[in-house]
Design a protein around this nucleic acid. Sequence first.
DNA 1: ATGGCATTGCAACAATGA
Length: 279
Amino acid sequence: MSENPWTLEEGRLALVTWNLNSVRVRTPRLIRFLKEHRPDVLCLQELKAEASDFPSAQVKEAGYEVEILGQRTYNGVAVLSRGPIVRKAEGLGDPSLDGQARFLVVETLGLHVASAYMPNGQSLESEKYAFKRAWLDGLNSWLRTSPLARERFLLLGDYNIAADDRDVANPDSWEGSVLYNDAMRAVVWEGFREGGLFDLFRVGEKRPGIYSWWDYRNLGFPKNDGLRIDHVFGTEDLVPLVRRGFVDREERKEKSCPEGTKPSDHAPLGVVIDPVEAA
DNA sequence: ATGGCATTGCAACAATGA
């Protein structure tokens, strides 16, 4: 008996983040997801495709506007919305970081919405981990300086960081990894907090054991050996509006797509909020 | 039940992911 996270009260908004792990491979799954659940805003990561290869026509036909920051092979992010979208920022404003398509900010439905694909880091000794720390420093600088981050701002995405023990099925085995260590927890709980952001998912859902990523290998999903590395943080003005936080585990199942498209290794994660007052 | 790694670019398999 699984609870349906998509029972949405009239007027409330569902804002969702989903690392798709290739938009071209999973287009049938994406379109079915949009038509079935009608999220108000959907942030995507790991498109692994240029904007010209994004299925924009099918997404529009499903009733969504879209803004894309694409890249061939790796990375790539987008924001979809049921309302009009205005593109506000792409990249963090640092050329040493913005060669990888990981950050896009739009305005839609009275909100500033960022779709972020934070670096993985690979291993503590890797150059990629140095890049991860630099990218996160760049994000913190952006949070402190951009007017977009001051109010009605949401940072949705694949953070590649588990925030606390509630987000990790086997904390002992993950402690000290690039996804889960003192420095990465400090980024979330000290850096983002000082940047004015609050954990909106945790406003609406306090229980442990809710994950958003499971390794394709070693029966990760059947054993529920997962991590919650996808998050929704946002500015303080949004905290009182949060009603729920949820993960749609159905989308991680093989059989949840009639077209037979395989699942991403991430499931969609979202928050339900009350509508923002008309300005 | 949810199932044992997947995607990309390339044209075999290396690089990458988390």
